[in-house]
Design a protein around this nucleic acid. Structure first.
Lengths: 243, 243
DNA sequence: CTGATACTCCATAAATCTATGGATAACAGA
DNA sequence: TCTGTTATCCATAGATTTATGGAGTATCAG
């Protein structure tokens, strides 16, 4: 009899975990979750970013909400969705790592679009910390500004990839540039680095993106005050703490 | 045009990640994966452990294999399945953590069956290392012997929960006992501790199970040579190194 | 109040996924 | 080779999930 109870309990347990699995069974939901690990967004913005119709995007978001992986905040007429906690981002990171490690296809795709493991060696977090402290490098956040505002490496300069070419002049050509983006599956930084190198600048990608940085327990700054003029020395944007 | 290519590439990417998600959308597959993170098993054993018919279990395992999360090894007439790498276990761990953190239901279930966060404070890995080194505690692996054989904390004594009552006499009543099992979602260690305490012994659970221990980069021993007579001082099963 | 905006909800057709019995295949042992 | 064991494969009925158009809601600006 007790066994029955135990068995029931455990079955329920895995059923609960499968609720989480249900979220990541659909490619678009994985994509949505990935976006939400960078910054909160309105339904409309999410639909646009993923190419979904509004009603479809909303439906997916409901599924995610029922699984408690996302939470919402209403602001006037729009609703902003966000990841429901650090564990969610950790899970998404683990999913991505697993994909890269086990699915050859993932690596192939990444390589095909230029972000492959083969492309230029990346800078480790430790090395970045080291060199940024001594002012040897500029840390460039090439994600969209909203994501920078939601959280970025202290001292990093926001320069979204889409504006990179137009704003090349702002970069000090004597310093090496370390660009970062959303993570190992993101193309922004690799593309930025390609562009920068084509311009004759020294540039490399950070080993991974902001979520991993945060998950490593390193400080994260928030807000849009780009230390545009000062070189990135990690001092001016101190306020942002892990969360 | 290039955008098309990129968009296609990225869509494929999330589709690949969703292949992984597909595995954990079904409760039984989560359960199977959880078991496989402890030790390899035959299809029959897995079917029995999860209460599935053989053909159903096999079908689930095929799904998992297609997603490359498990690999097989044939031995005579039976086929042994195993997790396809450390990333798989890490992913399962992340899934469990997310479930515990975000789904109140998970915690409720755990508490209902006695493994809840409320039950006795657990021993941290650091504390265990500390105290085991000085021989103050006995480390007890209460999982089935096959799992102990597949990997255990160096120096731990194998005493499966099902044999605990019968073999209580083997335990030195002057030492504190630290029991561990499969992880935070597993009941074995909490139950063992309850039993031990009822017998008047000092006993606590380790904060989590072997997978987390391994993921923390700590050494893992393999084989069935239980240091039955000698107290667990982490010396005799030395051979097992990280992996 | 009215209209506009940004979402959510609902019904439904089409696509997928599951469980399972029975056939088939791989292997060990006699 | 013949038999028993284990596991995979296959077909299929039944259950779920998905996309989407359009109706219904909440909120804001007049």
């Amino acid at each position: 009899m007790e066994y029955q109870i135990l068995a029931g309990g455990r079955a329920d347990l895995y059923e609960q975990l499968a609720r989480v699995g249900k979220v990541v069974v659909h490619p678009k939901r994985v994509e949505l979750l990935d976006l939400l690990c960078q910054a909160e967004r309105s339904v409309e913005a999410l639909a646009a970013a993923t190419g979904l119709k509004l009603s479809t995007a909303s439906a997916h978001l409901q599924v995610m909400r029922q699984a408690r992986l996302v939470e919402t905040r209403r602001e006037g007429t729009r609703v902003y969705y966000r990841a429901a906690g650090e564990e969610v981002c950790r899970f998404v990171t683990a999913l991505g790592d697993l994909g890269r490690a086990r699915l050859a296809e993932v690596d192939q795709i990444l390589r095909a679009i230029g972000a492959g493991s083969g492309s230029a060696e990346r800078v480790t977090r430790a090395e970045l910390l080291e060199r940024a402290r001594s002012g040897e490098v500029v840390v460039l956040d090439v994600r969209p500004v909203e994501e920078y505002a939601a959280g970025h490496i202290p001292g990093a300069v926001s320069l979204p990839l889409e504006h990179l070419e137009a704003r090349l002049g702002e970069l000090d050509p004597t310093l090496e540039i370390v660009a970062y983006c959303r993570g190992p599956l993101c193309l922004l930084a690799p593309e930025a680095v390609a562009t920068l190198r084509a311009e004759g600048l020294r540039a490399r990608c950070l080993e991974d993106g902001l979520p991993e940085w945060r998950q490593a327990g390193l400080p994260v700054a928030a807000g849009t005050d780009t230390p545009a003029t000062a070189p990135a020395d990690g001092r001016e944007t101190r306020p942002g703490r892990p969360r």
